[in-house]
Design a protein around this nucleic acid. Structure first.
Lengths: 148, 148
DNA sequence: CGGCATCCTAACAGATACTG
DNA sequence: CAGTATCTGTTAGGATGCCG
């Protein structure tokens, strides 16, 4: 499609400029660190699913367990704990019997949602192209093994 | 409709009911799938660093190794291969001696960059708040412990 | 120089049983 | 109901040596 969308900095420049000079280097190690932080937080297998589920409204532990059938209770617990620890999810335990615990998205969690939607949009837009590249790559790799 | 949440347990329907408590239930399983796809692709430890490094211009293998000191050669190789396989990174091997291989970001890779920058912006904006939450959480958890 | 193959460890993740 | 504890398998990732 549009290969010309973001001709970042190269256009014939030398190789090892990287970030150490020039006005085009807008990717600092701090940025990378921020991204890593976020990725470590929600880049795992279940966080996004949980956040997505909670985006539609509060849910109890068993609701989430039902809603995300593939997740084990262990991972659900761990995921919820981490999200809660970072303030993305709120946990409300009602002191009654039988116990009722409700989870909800905090404002922080909801704000992440929009960032993630941006990523989802990118993925939805490009996943066909990605698949095609992967397919091409795999095919050429296979063909290389049998040079007739 | 909204008076009872027991609909969640409705037999047979695996659907993501999400307890539609508002007009905001717009997170389909496809979205989650797209996100997972992207996360599987670049959610690992090094992809973002590599993409960030390449965003500033083409780089050789050893440049990247130097630029990202923490990465092992093994992981750098694996990361580059995956990114190349998915069409996010281009690999150009010059047939000369000593060998020279240059990596560059494709248009696809560059387009991902903007999505990631969005995430980085979120992270940069909220990481203080996140830290604060984590700190609070950890402190309250520690206070419950007994100093054996 | 630019890798790939091998070995090794640790974190991740699933299943199951048990508890308050 | 809402978890915790334990055991186990799988995978990510690091260190290093060899080779084109």
């Amino acid at each position: 499609m549009s290969d010309d969308e973001s001709r970042v900095a190269s256009a014939g420049t030398r190789a090892n400029v990287l970030r150490l000079s020039g006005p085009c280097a807008r990717w600092d190690e701090r940025d990378a660190d921020f991204i890593r932080e976020t990725l470590d937080l929600v880049g795992d297998k279940w966080s996004m699913l949980v956040i997505g589920a909670l985006a539609a409204g509060d849910a109890r532990y068993s609701d989430l367990d039902t809603e995300i059938p593939a997740v084990s209770r262990r991972m659900l617990t761990l995921t919820l704990k981490r999200l809660q620890r970072s303030g993305l999810v709120d946990r409300t335990a009602h002191a009654e019997v039988p116990p009722r615990v409700e989870y909800s998205l905090t404002g922080l969690g909801a704000s992440l949602l929009s960032a993630v939607e941006y990523l989802a949009a990118w993925s939805s837009e490009h996943h066909t192209e990605i698949r095609r590249h992967q397919d091409t790559y795999d095919r050429s790799a296979t063909e290389g093994r049998r040079p007739a």
